[in-house]
Design a protein around this nucleic acid. Structure first.
Length: 417
DNA sequence: CATTTTGAACCCCGTTTAAC
DNA sequence: GTTAAACGGGGTTCAAAATG
């Protein structure tokens, strides 16, 4: 059976996250998105962990469902921790996704972290002044089956390869435990093609998750597996062995849409490719402050080959645009508007879930239910990658453009006739 | 007047810089 | 030398401004 999995989201206890993020609501929202396995998230937080224990029951080994049986959505005990510390004489800020096999393992980890006086109550994504390598050692002592996956590995501020406070290699960060890093999360601003340029990453498998802070953003990136006997150990095995038979593909943002694709200065609205930023001496040509170097820049700096050489050997991926943004594009209005919400709900109700619309349903079938005729065409165009994007930079999201103004006008006219 | 867009505040803590 | 304040991030949220 096909399982779409999102291993990195947040709860209502994480900073800047929606109050709607509670397990029953997440389970329901996943059904509408087409997500089969989702992170419990935030299990280091005492209040949230209590909620997990009260609300969920184990269904398969290491996988959980709502106690009341109201949803088929599986939960897996994955969470994020934020590490701020010094290593190699430099300040480091790295985010990690932690996979745990059982409630008991989580309980032990939380006890150990509390003993070290970390404030777990402060945030669902606690900040630990804890060196990543030492942290991983501790986790492995508690339970061999716990694994760490570096989160959104290329973003400038909080990641293992980030330009502001990351490293140039996994070894620098994880030392002797580097062999136990067998997966990394590519993040919104990079896609597999970019990551394939590093031979250093041949040992690891690339995963994609949403890092959702609201129900709406669940599964904006995800992993698609073909699994017969679902369990925590089977998921980890597939990752560890890069099992291409079982790990079918990842679902990705177009990397240009991510917030840190290009180099740039958000204050001045300036952005450029990494090659050009050298020309400016790494400084904003307007305000002369240092440019925030984006994901493309870091990949360029660390890459040692063209991606195409190895593409055939890798787990493939599909690039998507969230359905709401597609609808918004077709109407020519912002994706938060009322019209968009209504059309979105209609399509989901008629066609099942968001992922089936984005990945499977035919253009013709979508056209039957879409009020705005450009929507079906936009989905097809997205599937073939024929869209324009103004790349994101310095925290500014990229802007998607599926249709030219002329095309949109033409479509409006044809409806009037 | 209703809707949409834009803008700023908020949460948290380790580090850095400024102030005492 | 010590303490205090500023800084930074992500994205939701609410308020204000702009649009039609």
């Amino acid at each position: 059976m096909r399982f779409i999995c999102d291993f990195h989201i947040h709860s209502k206890f994480s900073r800047a996250c929606s109050k709607e993020l509670e397990l029953p609501k997440i389970a329901k929202a996943c059904e509408r998105k087409g997500i089969n396995v989702v992170a419990t998230s935030d299990w280091t937080h005492p209040g949230w962990f209590k909620h997990i224990k009260e609300t969920l029951v184990e269904k398969e080994p290491g996988l959980f469902v709502l106690k009341d049986g109201s949803s088929p959505t599986r939960f897996i005990l994955t969470t994020e921790t934020s590490h701020v510390y010094k290593r190699g004489g430099q300040a480091r800020r790295v985010h990690l996704v932690v996979f745990a096999p059982s409630i008991e393992a989580v309980e032990k980890v939380n006890k150990k972290l509390e003993a070290r006086k970390f404030n777990l109550k402060a945030d669902g994504r606690p900040i630990l002044g804890f060196d990543c390598e030492n942290y991983y050692s501790l986790l492995k002592e508690i339970d061999e089956r716990i694994i760490i996956v570096p989160a959104h590995a290329w973003t400038p501020w909080f990641s293992v390869f980030g330009s502001k406070s990351g490293f140039d290699s996994l070894e620098e960060c994880f030392g002797k435990l580097t062999p136990e890093i067998f997966a990394i999360e590519t993040g919104l601003s990079s896609d597999p093609l970019m990551n394939w340029r590093l031979s250093a990453l041949d040992k690891v498998v690339l995963v994609s998750n949403s890092d959702a802070h609201s129900l709406d953003k669940l599964g904006r990136e995800a992993n698609v597996f073909e699994i017969e006997k679902l369990s925590y150990d089977e998921i980890v095995r597939i990752l560890r062995e890069q099992d291409k038979k079982r790990f079918l593909y990842t679902i990705e943002f177009f990397p240009e849409e991510g917030k840190y694709h290009f180099d740039g200065c958000a204050d001045c609205g300036f952005s450029c490719r990494s090659k050009e930023s050298k020309k400016y001496g790494g400084r904003c040509p307007k305000c002369k402050k240092l440019l925030t170097l984006g994901v493309e820049n870091r990949v360029d700096a660390l890459a040692d080959r063209e991606a195409e050489v190895v593409a055939q050997k890798k787990i493939p991926y599909k690039s998507i645009v969230p359905l709401k943004e597609i609808i918004a594009e077709a109407y020519g209005v912002g994706s938060a508007s009322k019209k968009i919400k209504t059309e979105y709900e209609d399509l989901i109700n008629n066609l099942g879930n968001e992922f089936s619309i984005l990945l499977d349903v035919s253009e013709q079938e979508i056209g039957k239910f879409a009020k705005q005729p450009l929507i079906a065409k936009a989905v097809t165009r997205m599937r073939s990658g024929k869209i324009d994007i103004k790349p994101g930079y310095d925290g500014v999201f990229g802007k998607i453009k599926i249709f030219s103004e002329a095309e949109r006008k033409k479509s409006v006219q044809s409806r009037l006739l």
